[in-house]
Design a binder for these strands. Structure first.
Length: 275
DNA sequence: CTTGTACCCTGACCGC
DNA sequence: TGCGGTCAGGGTACAA
């Protein structure tokens, strides 16, 4: 999905529009976006009449807190997007509507998802606690310190790139910002997490926070599918220094940016200054 | 326990 | 124009 900055951008767009609104009716067009144990029928029935009291985010999860105390959890993963209408959204934004939520102000929230890898589930407070317990710290929160990162790194023999993608260790980083953070920190993505020296850990800690903050300030990165609410693109794609730049010169040292595959996913890094 | 792989799904793109 | 292969920002179940 969209990673932390993109999901946070979606949250910022939706929160002022949805907070306090009551869901009048729900239509699920693609039942496979409703994650078990919730079913499309159960979701439809349970949400009708609920008021949204808060729109929040944890890692890459978008959370709608309902006045019954339950939470509607959403993951947009690779291609999910939200559109709020009327006016009736352009057809290009609604090619694969998986669900619609009618609101008490006459508007409708559309969830569109080409690949349908994203989805919804309904959780009780307790179920959410169990879910959240599996997630690592939020990298932009104050409690994510260099010391905390150092401690977690020291326990892992995984490549640092894979470590950054593991949501149980740090929550919210995905494939783009993992490469970007390592480039900023000048750390080779093939290094073992536990092998980073104190100075490198400090650089990586700063780099993670800086790249996520900058991306958030740019409303995220739009490479192909990601859109904020109502079709807005992000702007951070113009600031990428490693991701997607295979064969191009590094902006820092002019060496070629390389692409390798780690755990089945592309990693981009500079063969010159990341070592 | 940890780490890596296959899979879910569709569409865009490339080379033939 | 069509066809097959590859790839895509994620997460999970399962294997080693």
């Amino acid at each position: 999905m969209p990673e932390l900055p993109e999901v946070e951008t979606i949250r910022c767009d939706l929160a002022p529009e949805l907070t306090g609104r009551r869901i009048v009716a729900v239509r699920v067009h693609k039942p496979d976006i409703v994650l078990s144990p919730t079913s499309a029928q159960r979701l439809t029935r349970a949400l009708a009449g609920e008021r949204i009291v808060e729109v929040s985010r944890r890692a890459k999860n978008l959370l709608f807190r309902l006045d019954s105390g339950r939470l509607l959890l959403t993951q947009v993963r690779m291609t999910g997007r939200f559109v709020l209408g009327p006016p009736l959204p352009a057809r290009s934004e609604l090619k694969h509507v998986a669900a619609e939520f009618d609101l008490d102000d006459g508007r409708t929230l559309y969830y569109d998802d080409v690949r349908r890898l994203g989805g919804f589930t309904l959780l009780s407070e307790g179920e959410w606690s169990v879910w959240e317990a599996r997630l690592g710290p939020e990298p932009l929160e104050e409690d994510f310190t260099a010391r905390l990162l150092a401690d977690r790194l020291s326990r892992s023999r995984a490549p640092i790139k894979s470590f950054l993608l593991d949501q149980r260790r740090i929550a919210g980083i995905g494939n783009i910002y993992a490469s970007e953070a390592l480039h900023r920190a000048r750390v080779d993505p093939r290094r073992t997490a536990g092998s980073l020296k104190p100075l490198e850990v400090t650089r990586l800690h700063r780099a993670i926070r800086a790249v996520l903050r900058d991306a958030l300030a740019g409303s995220g990165t739009t490479l192909r599918d990601y859109r904020a609410v109502n079709g807005r693109s992000g702007r951070f794609q113009n600031s990428l220094r490693a991701y997607g730049r295979e064969g191009e010169p590094c902006r820092r040292c002019r060496s070629r940016v390389r692409r390798i595959v780690q755990a089945g996913r592309s990693t981009f890094y500079c063969s010159g200054c990341q070592s």
